[in-house]
Design a protein around this nucleic acid. Structure first.
Lengths: 337, 337
DNA sequence: ATGAAAGCGCTAACAG
DNA sequence: CTGTTAGCGCTTTCAT
């Protein structure tokens, strides 16, 4: 039952040469209808499937696309992966997936792995991309797109949303709702581009509205729930009770809300909380999370589309693809009385 | 800069034959230390990496493992995928990922794709597996493990938890908490093995405790939040207000809780709610969800480990691997007064 | 211990 | 339009 029918077998059975068979399966050169039909029949009968390995070996096209992510179980990541998966399949490619757990060594290793497997293109999601990663991929000459704010400063293809503007707008939204003391909990480490952009947006919004910046209520953590909880709890424990808290990640925002609850306050009545990303969670939690929406699925789809265009030498309008964001008003932010 | 160094180049530069180079990179036959060192040096200098395509073509080993899932963005799925990824990498394999969106045609297509790509093994997660899928995989002779309750009745390798016992235990737990009218919201379609097992566990627990089964409060839906919401809302709208609701999926359970809230009741004070799966969500939501925990990560890891064992012809103790579950007590279920 | 040579299954000139 | 032939980069007998 095993699939060991080769092009040779088909050729023999159809009474033609292997090149003819090759021609019909690839539609690469004209073949008489009659012969073509005969070959097709044999293929159907035998259940012949071309060996992509052999094919790739000669064409140097693996029909494989590499996807490098920090962790599939992250809600931000897997919605992007869905988008990637969709266009990948649409163009007849397969996905080679690598988790890195945000460890640089794993990221580098994954790149090597994908190179070795001859992927034709790469989409890489990383929070902490640096020159080494980019150089490693560049050296290989494999087309790549990055979904990574830290990639913004490099001369590489990226897809992202404008984090500075998004942060500005959400901060402004909070201000418009009457909040003055607005804490910022960052889910990205200090000194990254992402952090800088977001901080800039936040500070600009404050300044534009004549609110003094209070460095004491700007905190750092990472993206997960427990971290948001911890940072928020600390803030409260230190006796700081802001009007509103802007957490740059939904999971962490929910963690923050939980901390607020556990400290005996109410969201949004005592403190308003805004998130970032509009992941599925933000709709499921109660109060429903007011958040800035990034088109995650689209980001993945666009990133992969770019890679495929590069592979096919189709022109690309721009290197930095910036997708729109939106402020999604739900229940966790209310007008301050 | 491109990586077009071949075994030939290495051989030439090291002044040996390509077979010798092959021997050192594969450690397959003894090679004089001196020669070996020379070859190794050249490899390091040139940055030579063996072309796995060519290698696979002759060895018939692709070092690729296929993973078929309904959708990576499902929280149940991606925690399993994490486990799969981990052991896959540990054994030097790469993952070929395919989303099916639970559509049978996509599932079948994915199987064909993976076959064509010469994967050495497959782990398939599916809610609605049937003979066609299994036959398609069986025909290929590719080792496979299924994480799919519907695969239980087939003579194939599976990993799962005992759903009947788990459902029994949770129902019993609810009963022990003083609840008598216990609604069951199934996230699996009627007439599937999974549904049957769970229903059996539920009914057995009721019967064992002299509680009459009320078919009217047994409902069906699917796994997502909105569905749980809808089904619960319907129940309430029909004037049915059970003591407790057991929803066989966390996301849907949270949907149910939200519906209960929106109808003006409180969880757990008015109605207790229990979920299934112990996904990340269940800890993040408030009230924290009481749920039955399945070792998702482990299920993925075990499934892939089984596949790898099969590939290496290592003996496997059993075909049906059943992992433990546990009742995780949190806040959404309380003693009925 | 090492090299020569065959061949994995396929595509792509090159002839005819 | 079709067949012959030469590889793609590698592993693996089979000699030496």
């Amino acid at each position: 039952m095993k699939n060991n029918v080769t092009i040779k077998d088909v050729a023999k059975l159809a009474g033609v040469s292997i090149s003819t068979v090759s021609r019909v399966i690839n539609d690469s050169k004209p073949v008489t209808d009659e012969v073509k039909q005969r070959v097709l029949d044999v293929i159907k009968e035998t259940g012949y499937v071309p060996n992509p390995l052999a094919r790739s070996l000669v064409t140097k096209k693996s029909k494989l696309l590499g996807v490098i992510v920090p962790e599939v179980s992250d809600s931000f990541v897997n919605e992007i992966v869905n988008g990637i998966e969709c266009v990948t399949k649409m163009y007849g490619y397969d996905i080679l997936l690598a988790n890195t757990y945000s460890e640089k060594s794993q990221e580098l290793k994954s790149i090597d792995l994908l190179k070795a497997k001859q992927v034709e293109g790469i989409v890489m999601i990383s929070w902490t991309l640096d020159e080494d990663h980019i150089q490693s991929i560049n050296n290989s000459g494999i087309p790549a797109t990055y979904i990574s704010k830290t990639a913004q400063t490099f001369d590489v293809y990226t897809v992202s949303t404008n984090n500075e503007d998004a942060t500005y707008d959400m901060t402004k939204y909070l201000i418009d709702k009457g909040h003055k003391e607005i804490a910022l909990i960052m889910t990205s480490e200090a000194d990254t581009i992402l952090e800088t952009e977001r901080r800039r947006g936040y500070e600009r919004a404050l300044t534009d509205n004549n609110i003094a910046i209070n460095p004491d209520i700007i905190r750092y953590g990472n993206t997960d729930h427990d971290n948001g909880y911890k940072v928020m709890a600390e803030l409260l424990d230190e006796g700081k009770k802001p009007d509103a808290v802007f957490v740059t990640g939904d999971e962490a925002a929910i963690g923050a809300i939980n901390a607020i609850f556990d400290k005996g306050y109410n969201v949004p009545n005592d403190i308003s909380v805004a998130g970032f990303n509009n992941t599925k969670l933000s709709k499921m939690y109660r109060p429903k999370l007011t958040t800035v929406g990034q088109p995650l699925y689209d980001m993945g789809a666009v990133a992969m589309r770019m890679v495929i265009k590069m592979i096919n030498d189709e022109p690309l309008e721009e290197k930095k693809f910036v997708l729109p964001y939106e402020i999604i008003e739900r229940e966790s932010v209310i007008e301050k009385k």
